[in-house]
């Protein structure tokens, strides 16, 4: 039996909601499909806004605060649109020991952006990761999908200025 048989309408006419509805349907609208569903929203829309969180909460009969808790616990989800470029700095143990913290500070200072945030002009998102599996190259970072190791503050800034 579906936990919540009443069909809740998506917040907008946007076609992408069809994908989200399909995920929920595949799981029989069970509340334990919440993470799967949020995944689909994140992948289809690029981020989770209040309307989509409210929709998922209602459609799967999961409390709002629980949905919000999950959405903010996993780094995979973002509540704001991602920037044009993404810079991931690894904060895993090896990278941290090798100075990832300073890299982070350098970026934060120059671009006025903190981990998990996007610059006001929407150009750069700064993300942290817990070990990207490149410890031998510590400190490591990923710039628009490309892994770079043994980063210095200067290297990092050179990479980022190219995106400006």
């Amino acid at each position: 039996m579906p936990a919540y048989p009443v069909k809740v309408q998506p917040p907008t006419e946007d076609k992408r909601w069809g994908l989200v509805m399909a995920t929920m349907k595949r799981h029989g609208y069970q509340s334990n499909a919440m993470i799967e569903t949020l995944h689909t929203v994140q992948e289809s829309f690029g981020f989770l806004d209040d309307d989509s969180l409210r929709f998922v909460s209602k459609a799967l009969n999961v409390p709002l605060s629980k949905v919000y808790g999950v959405a903010t616990f996993y780094h995979f989800f973002t509540l704001k649109p991602q920037g044009k470029h993404t810079c991931v700095i690894c904060m895993g143990t090896a990278c941290y020991v090798k100075g990832a913290g300073e890299l982070m500070e350098t970026i934060a200072k120059k671009y006025n952006v903190h981990p998990g945030e996007t610059t006001d002009d929407g150009n750069l998102s700064l993300v942290t990761a817990r070990c990207i599996g490149a410890c031998g190259l510590a400190p490591a970072g990923v710039f628009d999908g490309e892994v770079n190791g043994k980063l210095t503050a200067a290297d990092t800034l050179t990479k980022l200025t190219k995106w400006e």
């Binding site: 209040d50 709002l64 605060s65 629980k66 919000y68 808790g69 903010t72 616990f73």
Partner: peptide, 16 residues
């Protein structure tokens, strides 16, 4: 519920 993780974790009501 609880939002975020680590030192930023905090209790929230509904959508924070």
């Amino acid at each position: 519920d609880v939002s975020g993780r680590g030192i930023q974790a905090k209790v929230i009501t509904e959508l924070n």
